[in-house]
Design a protein around this nucleic acid. Structure first.
Lengths: 117, 117
DNA sequence: ACAAGTACTTACCCTAAAGTATGTATCCAT
DNA sequence: ATGGATACATACTTTAGGGTAAGTACTTGT
């Protein structure tokens, strides 16, 4: 999973920031290119893997699972796989993920206010 | 200012996301490594260039001015230079920047709730 | 027999963002 | 005249994140 060189200045700074700035901490969980988009999709309800793919046409499969895994590791989304063939895997917001909803909405609303609609 | 290769898949995806996902739009303004930290510092009042440096010891000068310029271009912060020698330059949140305060606080509070304080 | 759908995995490459290092101009204090 | 403080600028390198492409395993439909 794209191994991390554990002692670049870059990562040290990241660690520091996460501890020093509460906003920075949150950005590491919901920031980046794809995570907010995935979370935004899941806010409208649980979705299957391929539903997410189709909902976000420009995302690659690699990025989708990579971030879904990260979001699971951060306890923001849950994965439920029904043991059938063909596979039936559903992703949903965890309770922690749900608690993000008002925050995400606050962010989105500011965006709407800025862009006019 | 680090010229942008205007037609990589990367940038096309970025453009698309900004239009499709309101959260993504906001992330482009306040996301990234340093911007939230700088904004968080300015939320406690205007600061001089070197005050910011000292408040964020791990940031390099390059990153600091680069992001300050970007934040100015996005109308989130203002720069006021008194024409004296030695220079006296103050950075502050613009009115738009101020309007971000509740959003940033919502984010920070969620972070605090998650980390326990 | 073969394509299509499910949900991934893996190897390799490219680039934007961040880091390193050094330079600029002006003034004041020692 | 040398060093420190102010607020930057600019060339050069590194790396983490993202993109490309192809493969896996199992089943249903034609």
């Amino acid at each position: 999973m794209t191994a991390i060189k554990e002692s670049s200045t870059r990562n040290e700074n990241k660690e520091m920031s996460i501890n020093a700035c509460p906003v920075s901490y949150v950005m590491n969980k919901i920031g980046g290119h794809w995570k907010p988009i995935i979370l935004y999709q899941l806010m409208s309800g649980p979705k299957r893997y391929n539903e997410l793919r189709r909902a976000i046409p420009t995302i690659t499969e690699k990025m989708l699972i990579q971030h879904l895994k990260q979001l699971q590791a951060d306890d923001l989304v849950t994965r439920t796989a029904e043991p059938v063939v063909p596979p039936f895997v559903t992703y949903a917001l965890s309770s922690v993920g749900e608690s993000l909803t008002p925050v995400m909405e606050a962010i989105a609303n500011w965006g709407f206010a800025q862009t006019g609609r």
